[in-house]
């Protein structure tokens, strides 16, 4: 993995973490991305804490150092604390997370590892717990988080060691 950034953003500083990053070079996608990202975090039907569970599971599997360090304040306000975050390991099935939270993590793992391998039993458990709109929300949230964590890795310049935890707001 390259530890040097592959592009230099070289943009005027707006104070917006997205617009000032390399993503700001692709001007046509910035506003649509920010609006979609806002909807994922604010417009439900899943809570921000539930979305954050999937985001952090993805961050750890993709090994995006930035994504792993971030905690969104909206998720903390919705009830996600560090005691829960610490349970998002490969042994989460043995954790004290709720069954609903574990289903979110299993679905995320299917996306990341083998999306064609979902069992009939798991599909049934998911539909018993989640509405169709919630399954769509979870799927799009995983897709978006995965898209931009892989983007961060692909652009290079990723620190080799973990960063301190950073509590931030969802970029607007």
């Amino acid at each position: 993995m390259s530890n040097q950034p592959r592009v230099s953003a070289n943009l005027s500083k707006t104070g917006n973490v997205v617009r000032d990053s390399a993503l700001g070079l692709v001007t046509e996608t910035v506003d649509p991305y920010l609006r979609f990202n806002h909807a994922i975090w604010h417009n439900g039907p899943l809570t921000a804490a539930e979305v954050e569970l999937a985001r952090l599971r993805n961050a750890r599997k993709v090994n995006c150092v930035f994504c792993k360090a971030v905690r969104y304040d909206i998720a903390i306000e919705a009830g996600l604390d560090e005691a829960k975050v610490e349970q998002i390991t490969d042994d989460f099935d043995q954790s004290e997370l709720s069954q609903r939270e574990k289903l979110i993590l299993v679905y995320t793992d299917y996306y990341l590892q083998q999306p064609t391998a979902m069992t009939t039993e798991f599909k049934q458990r998911l539909t018993e717990e989640f509405s169709a709109a919630e399954i769509v929300h979870l799927s799009l949230a995983i897709m978006l988080c995965n898209c931009f964590s892989r983007c961060a890795v692909s652009l290079g310049g990723m620190p080799e060691e973990d960063l301190p935890r950073m509590q931030i707001s969802v970029p607007e």
Binding site: L23, T29, M143, R150, C151
Partner: peptide, 13 residues
Amino acid sequence: LVALIEALGLFYG
């Protein structure tokens, strides 16, 4: 390059 990387994330997803 940035556009390609973003687009690939979307297509992959």
